[in-house]
Each structure stands twice: as C-alpha cells, then as structure tokens.
C-alpha cells in the first residue's frame, strides 16, 4: 500500500468523519436562538408540554360544565394559585 493511501485510510478519513459527525450534532443547536429572554416582545408560538394532542384547539371541545366547576365554582374541588413577576 502506498504511504499516501495508508495515511488517507488511517488518519484523514476518520478525522473527516469525526468533523462531519460533530458538525451534524452541533449545527442544529447552534442555529437555534437562546430562547426567550426577558424584555423581548413575545412572538413565540404557545407550547403545551403534556397537553392533549390537538393542542389548544382541544379546549373548544371541552364541556363548559367541566370548566365552570372547581375552586371558583366549588364542585370538583379544583385548586391552585396564581403569581405575578
């Protein structure tokens, strides 16, 4: 095997693959912004973690009776609290 071929197979190809894989891993997160920062105007789409598959649209299909009861209505014993920052 010519010395150049050995160099190519043993060092250059692995190094090239390493670079390509590293770029593929880090590029998506580098393209992202830092997320929402205080003082910015909110332009983000609502995000619902652990919510129904339909997202916010699901609330239109909810029975009004199920919404009206609770801490403020008393029936289901719903609770919670609020805060402002």
């Amino acid at each position: 095997m010519a010395p150049f071929h050995a160099l190519l197979i043993l060092f250059l190809l692995p190094a090239g693959l390493f670079l390509v894989i590293t770029l593929l891993v880090y590029l998506p997160s580098m393209r992202h912004s830092e997320g929402y920062q205080p003082g910015q105007v909110w332009r983000g789409e609502p995000e619902w973690f652990g919510g129904p598959r339909k997202g916010v649209e699901a609330i239109d299909e909810t029975e009004p009776a199920a919404v009206g009861s609770g801490r403020d209505g008393g029936e289901s014993g719903r609770g919670g609290a609020s805060g402002h920052w």
């Binding site: 998506p28 997160s29 992202h32 912004s33 830092e34 997320g35 929402y36 920062q37 003082g39 910015q40 105007v41 909110w42 332009r43 983000g44 789409e45 995000e47 973690f49």
Partner: peptide, 18 residues
Amino acid sequence: ARVATGDAFTSTQRAEID
C-alpha cells in the same frame, strides 16, 4: 423592545422540561 427571533425554548431546554 427586543423581539424574540425564534422559539421560546431551545431543544435542550425543551428536553429538560420534558
């Protein structure tokens, strides 16, 4: 006021919340 250019959370932050 500055305007947020992207999503509210980065993918890392989203994973942390999940």
